[in-house]
Amino acid sequence: MMVSEATGMSKLHMAIFAVLLAFLVALPFFVYPVFAMKVMCFALFAAAFNLLLGFGGLLSFGHAAYFGGASYVAAHAAKVWGLTPELAVLCGTAAAAVLGLVIGSLAIRRQGIYFAMVTLAFAQMIYFLALQLPFTGGEDGLQSVPRGRLFGIFSLQDSLPLYFFVLAVTLGGILFLYRVVHSPFGQVLKAIRENEPRAISLGYDVNRYKLMVFVLSATFAGLAGAVKSQVFQLASLTDVHWSMSGEVVLMALLGGMGTIFGPLVGAAIVVSMQNYFATFGAWVTVMQGVIFVLGVLLFREGLIGVLSRWLKRPL
């Protein structure tokens, strides 16, 4: 596979990203893009989660903590502190990074299912805090978060600036995660995932790498949640609920964990399902469950994983 020296990207991947970018730039001129913004936020969330699961080999069952935690902090920063959107998003993201560092340093000492359980337990604590703390709005969450002026200039009340803000941040985040996967660090991560004892015998402190990938993953999950709170002017208990942690697992597995484009496709599918099946009420969860089971049974490697195998190209 030829990889460009400057971008570190294969030609195929560059072409796919270019088409995606062109499509997303044109989109708001044809349809009202709320749905697209939601998909973009979840695509970044799923890509961040996939960094940890697909490339770090670590299954977190508590990623709602970073997504939702950041969403609360960003909403609070915009609403109560009156910060501009980019600063509010930055606050939320930083909070997720700190949370990731604290929880990650405790969780990485455990392996496999115990690791997943520790991450879940901490996420439940964050949920409890979101429910109980005085400034989180309890059951209602933080509503009517104002859409301020980006850099104090562009009003995000207007849908185009808002849309391009979301596009720039989410696609930028996804490209950054791509770079992490295809970096010297990413190379070590793959080595650890494939044969941890061997990586240790080569002298790698594997726990440091695991912690670092955990923090990076939490940070970008936080970025996604923070942006989402600005788009929907809302931080709610849904964002920190364990089912949100489950949804992101679903997105990554459905699209194909350990692939580049899988999480994006998975996010688009899950968000579409929720939108179009919304009228079925509680049945959405059941349908999601059925699709998940079918998806896992039919394509274990996920949609993009299967496609990648057919085309014999990493996607």
Binding site: G8, R179, Q187, L202, M212
Partner: peptide
Amino acid sequence: ELSVLQNVRVALQRKRGESYDFWRSEA
């Protein structure tokens, strides 16, 4: 899942210590 070349490079890159550089290209 790594190529033969990458397997050996993983060993070489540890000695030089750029292995935490997540912002750099693989190139």
